[in-house]
Design a protein around this nucleic acid. Structure first.
Length: 556
RNA sequence: GCGCCCGUAGCUCAGCGGAUAGAGCGUCGGACUUCGAAUCCGCAGGUCAUGGGUUCAAAUCCCAUCGGGCGCUCCA
């Protein structure tokens, strides 16, 4: 639909520019004031620097062509002030869009632009040393929604969680559990190293320890087994919380596997083969400065231990070798300094670093009212994702995280999230969906079943109705753009805008009335409902047929 | 000191070259005998951190400065 208009604009401008001139891509938007038209394009502004002519002159010429070529779609074309070209579209155009959306239904907004390209999306990957907290939750939601959006655009998406189950952190977890076990049973036995982790979850694991292994084996000699037990019970918890949050993975990739199958050794010798490795101070270094990093990095320590970096190189090699067209990592912003060395390693090994994209998700700061919430993982005093979801509900938490750009820090006031649960923007959007459902119920009782509505082409859409349709019309392009630019937060803003128009329309216009146009208004509601549902699905947020009171529906 | 991100309404944040800068929350005031008022309408609130520059056009791009967060481990 909109493509037709875009193509006409492109053709008209290339005709004006002449052959061989590279054109800016045409785009249309809704003008700020409905009186200015249904759509507007700024193509003349893009052409101006290329052709070295004033935008107004270009706009006039392009518009003149369009008045001819686009006559079938366009009612009037205006050229305004600095160089905007505004369109008022024919009623037939709006009827076509309505038909087209109704016909596509749940598929409206999907496309095959991804062309089946394989994308590996790795996100969260929180260390299995404790429950995941709200910061991970933010990355989880962004990753999940991006995965859904990419899949809707015809990409073949694999979702992956990388488990750091091999290093010192995890061993420290084991010691923490063992220490707690001794302490809670008043067993006075020295342990060679203190664990760093505290909190109720440590105690829960140590309590469960006896059911998992004989008491006689619970000692430092079996620290590996204890650690494995701790890791797997934490992972179970993480899986459960994420599952309840509707976040699922295709694969959980174990770091330990890379040690076991020799991948790390292979990665290091690969670097050696390219002369990118040196021995110094008893350690093995990757000469990453040669590949754009600011300093060289250790692969194997003096102690003989491999660094996390070494296994991460192997992990990324593994990803490349699995044949993905694009690797997307979602990392916490505190890891941004880490990217240059990973890129350097990939470059050194001959992999295209351009295929690796990293989204850095900025931090979430928690407050309760004005008071900041102290977050200390080691002390075990932090708000988990589970706590937050239990308090605010999955829909609200997802929506909240997706209202902000991933590269902006965000303050999450827990008090507010609880207190305003009724006014939370997510309910604003969901209410619109429920409201349309409710209208349908009412209409059906009056003899207008939604499935038997007949579209009448001579109906004349009002200005507000065209605004609803134009929002709906822009939806597929938006999704494609979000996929390309990886900005999932734009979808919530789109919904708020669409729903704002709808609510206003509802108060201004009686949908189910005695006049003959009731059926046409109901069809319009049906198309809006389709778009709402499709968008909410991509966000992983419920599209309710009926709003329920929060009190009756606690802890979703 | 170096690097990344951010500085927009009282608060939390969208907008990131183009038409009078927006939303939610918060203040205040209106609108339910009719499709759900979890809604709508109105008022108030801005030197878009500051100073330069590029451009026909800058909140948006470039440079500098100031302020905030996060990194700069043979930690993960």
């Amino acid at each position: 639909m909109i493509e037709t208009l875009l193509k006409l604009i492109n053709d008209a401008s290339s005709k004006y520019a002449g052959p061989g001139v590279s054109l800016p891509r045409a785009a249309v938007t809704v003008p700020p004031n409905p009186a200015q038209g249904d759509f507007t394009t700024g193509i003349a502004f893009g052409l101006a620097p290329v052709l070295k002519k004033p935008p107004l002159e270009i706009a006039a010429a392009v518009a003149a062509t369009l008045r001819d070529t686009a006559a079938g779609i366009v009612e009037t074309i205006d050229v305004v002030k600095p160089g905007h070209i505004n369109f008022l579209l024919r009623q037939s155009f709006w009827h076509d869009t309505l038909d087209s959306i109704l016909e596509k239904g749940a598929g409206y907004g999907s496309s095959d632009h991804g062309g089946g390209h394989k994308v590996l999306l790795e996100y969260i990957s929180a260390n299995p040393t404790g429950p995941i907290h709200v910061g991970h939750g933010r990355g989880a939601v962004i990753g999940d929604v991006l995965a859904r959006i990419l899949a809707s655009q015809g990409y073949e998406v694999t979702r992956e969680y990388y488990i750091n189950d091999a290093g010192n952190q995890v061993l420290s977890l084991g010691y923490s559990v063992l220490g707690d076990y001794y302490r809670s049973r008043h067993i006075d036995t020295a342990v060679s190293r203190p664990g760093e982790y505290q909190g109720a979850y440590i105690h829960d694991i140590s309590s469960a320890l006896e059911t998992a292994m004989p008491a006689a084996d619970i000692n430092e000699e079996h620290i590996r087994t204890i650690t494995e037990f701790a890791v797997s019970s934490i992972l179970d918890g993480i899986r459960q919380v994420l599952g309840g949050f509707d976040i699922l993975f295709d694969r959980w990739f174990s770091e330990k596997q890379l040690f076991g199958d020799g991948s790390i050794r292979r990665a290091i010798s690969g670097l050696e083969a390219r002369g990118a490795v040196k021995q110094e101070d008893g350690a093995t270094w990757f000469l990453s400065t040669r590949y754009g990093d600011e300093k060289d990095r250790v692969l194997q320590k003096q102690t003989g231990e491999l660094t996390y970096f070494a296994s991460d190189i192997a992990y990324h090699v593994n990803k490349y070798e699995r044949g993905y067209d694009l690797l997307i990592n979602i990392w916490g912003a505190d890891h941004h300094g880490y990217l240059p060395r990973v890129r350097a390693a990939m470059r050194a090994l001959g992999y295209d670093p351009g295929r690796l994209a990293v989204l850095f998700v900025q931090m979430v700061r928690l407050t309760r009212g004005d008071k900041p919430v102290a977050m200390s993982k080691r002390a075990g005093e932090y708000v988990t994702l589970k706590d937050l979801v239990d308090e605010a509900g999955t829909d609200a938490v997802r929506f909240f995280f997706l209202q902000r750009s991933h590269e902006s820090q965000l303050v999450f006031d827990i008090e507010l999230a609880k207190k305003q649960s009724q006014e939370n923007p997510v309910y604003y959007v969901q209410y619109a969906h429920a409201r349309i459902a409710s209208i349908f119920g009412f209409a059906a009782a009056r003899g207008w079943p939604v499935d038997a509505l007949k579209h009448r082409q001579d109906y004349s859409f009002s200005s507000q109705e065209k605004m609803l349709l134009s929002q709906c019309l822009l939806y597929p392009g938006l999704i494609r753009d979000i996929a390309a630019r990886r900005e999932p937060h734009r979808l919530t803003h789109f919904l708020v805008e669409l729903v704002g128009i709808l609510h206003k329309y509802y108060t201004d216009t009686r949908v189910v009335d005695s006049d003959a146009d009731t059926e046409q208004r109901l069809l319009l509601m049906k198309t809006v409902k389709i778009v709402l549902k499709n968008a909410l699905d991509l966000l992983g947020i419920h599209a309710p047929e009926k709003m329920e009171k929060l009190e009756e529906n606690p802890a979703r």
